[in-house]
Amino acid sequence: MNRTSPTVRSTIAGAPVDPVAAAVPASPLLEVSGVTLQYKTTDHLVTATYRVDFQVFKSDRYVLLGPSGCGKSTLLKAIGGYLEPVEGAIRLNGHEVTRPGPDRMMVFQEFDQLLPWKSVRENVLFALTTSGRAKGAEAAERTDHYINKVGLAKFAHSFPHTLSGGMKQRVAIARGMAMEPDVLLMDEPYAALDALTRRRMQDELLRLWDDTKFTVLFVTHSIEEAIRVGTRILLLSPHPGQVKAELNSIPPEQLGTAAQAELEARINDMLFVH
């Protein structure tokens, strides 16, 4: 794939041709440039990330990896539009992100992200109709399609409180995917699941990706999960979060081989040594 470097693009930006419209495949979908994020606690101003740069291209499975306190979740919230950077900019398709919107659907870690007063189907349908992503028959069709895809057709009319944690996360993923956002933002979605379910959910995510090749930005603190889920991995150092490296992950067929162990060791060294 021809990935034009940002410096080259900025030279064409002066020309009358709109750089976004002109070079769709080459320009990044999401561009995070020099983003510093701060938030206030009761008596401190905390710098969560410091001048973070990275680019996400279409169909990337981009993983933000780092130990707790590296600001990866805060970074994802900023991309979601919930937090404004004090420095730098976040651009989606060339437009600066200023507020939350359905073009960046979040999947949270918490199981209470589904609306408890709506059934599985209503949860997905409501998201589509309220945000205006789809209406009427199209919305209903899309809802059923994605609920089917995550294997919850039998539970379409169940209320969230009757579902297991893994099933709730599946509904949240179905909801996110049904919105067909530009990028799906997943904030440690499997962290609260048991190990067996987590593994199954990771495989399922890859299978879903094989189907529709959606772009996903995935936050995790597990090196193994990052390698399994991601195509590209951004390593962040803690306090404040700074980019330490941006690595390519291994293809799925190399999972479980020496290549995985090698990459794991390499990431481990980068994150936790010195």
Partner: peptide, 20 residues
């Protein structure tokens, strides 16, 4: 989380109060 979900749908103000 629920508030953030609502805002993710583009809801705010009265819409957020009513629907979430």
């Amino acid at each position: 989380t629920l508030r953030m979900v609502g805002r993710n749908y583009g809801l705010n103000g009265l819409g957020l109060v009513r629907h979430i």
